[in-house]
């Protein structure tokens, strides 16, 4: 009928009272109680009876107050109180010094965990705790603010952690469409410094990598042209300026002057061509009459 405790690894037997001993103890306690009650009654009675006398003794008449026994006792009590306080202080100092050492010695000899496991119903205790209220009382922000995350992260072997993760499985489980639906792309784009991004981009390298021939082969030029707003393009072209430059180069006014000055009318042109043809005809006749091979001069000209 005795539980076993372990002290420094050695089991120690705890003594248990038997029924008879318990009866004797109860009787003793009953006698003590009656005795104490009788004593209290006796003391109260005596005190009531002797109260005037006691009062006279404590405060005798015709005696200066500072010599009254009550005053003397009070002074002694005050002195004793101070001594008691001093004694308590010294005792605390001694206890502070000794208790930890004694407790350490005791705890060293007792397996407290085992003791708690054997004697305490932890499940019941936990069931009484209102964890929700406890968590509600915790200031998580303050707790997180106290945590030195940098140091914690620095200690983590991220490579090792990542190598353990089966990324394929993780990605397979991710619902990318749902994520994309949740993203406010407009807000993201508004925050983007496009100029800086473009300035950093190496377009030459990008263009070098592109197979422009393949791209051009895939291009549906007809569709592109159908979509193009050619009218707008033509509106943007400075046709008047281009014509002006061309006219500057070819000197059209001079040509117009030449043509209108020398060949103002079809009549003049016809007379001239008739004259040329008549010249050729006459030359052919003369050449034939003189048995002369036609000279290359004018007669070789295209008819």
């Amino acid at each position: 009928m005795s539980k076993e405790l372990t002290t420094s690894g050695r089991p120690v037997a705890v003594p248990q009272l038997g029924p008879e001993a318990r009866l004797a103890l109860d009787v003793a306690l009953g006698v003590a109680g009656v005795t104490v009650g009788a004593a209290v009654v006796a003391v109260r009675t005596v005190h009531r009876v002797t109260a005037p006398l006691t009062r006279l003794l404590w405060h005798p008449p015709l005696v200066p107050t500072r010599f009254h026994p009550a005053t003397v006792v009070a002074d002694l009590a005050r002195t004793g109180g101070a001594d008691r306080e001093e004694l308590r202080r010294r005792a605390e100092v001694l206890l502070d010094a000794w208790v930890p050492a004694l407790v350490a010695m005791i705890v060293e000899r007792i397996d407290i965990t085992q003791l708690v496991e054997d004697n305490v119903d932890l499940d019941q205790i936990v069931s009484t705790v209102d964890l929700d209220a406890a968590v509600a009382r915790v200031d998580l922000d303050a707790a997180v603010a106290r945590v030195d995350l940098d140091t914690a992260v620095a200690r983590v072997d991220l490579d090792g952690v990542v190598s353990l993760v089966d990324l394929d499985a993780v990605v397979a489980r991710v619902d990318i469409e749902a994520i994309v639906d949740r993203i406010d792309l407009d807000a993201v784009a508004a925050k983007l410094d496009v100029d800086a991004v473009v300035a950093r981009a190496d377009f030459d390298a990008v263009i070098d990598r592109i197979d422009l021939d393949a791209v051009a082969a895939k291009l549906d030029v007809d569709a592109v042209m159908a979509r193009a707003d050619l009218d707008a393009v033509i509106e943007r072209i400075d046709i008047v300026g281009i014509i002006g430059e061309v006219l500057d180069v070819i000197d059209l006014p001079a040509i117009i002057r030449d043509s209108s000055g020398s060949m103002a009318s079809e009549t003049v042109r016809g007379v001239r061509m008739t004259g040329i043809n008549a010249d050729d005809a006459l030359s052919r006749v003369v050449d034939r009459a003189l048995f002369r091979r036609r000279h290359h001069n004018a007669s070789d000209a295209p008819q």
Partner: peptide
């Protein structure tokens, strides 16, 4: 761009004949 009509261009620079 020549102001001379196409049919007359081959004759340009050739010696003129009697009729003309």
């Amino acid at each position: 761009i020549s102001p001379v009509p196409r049919e007359a261009r081959p004759y340009q620079g050739h010696s003129a004949g009697l009729v003309t």
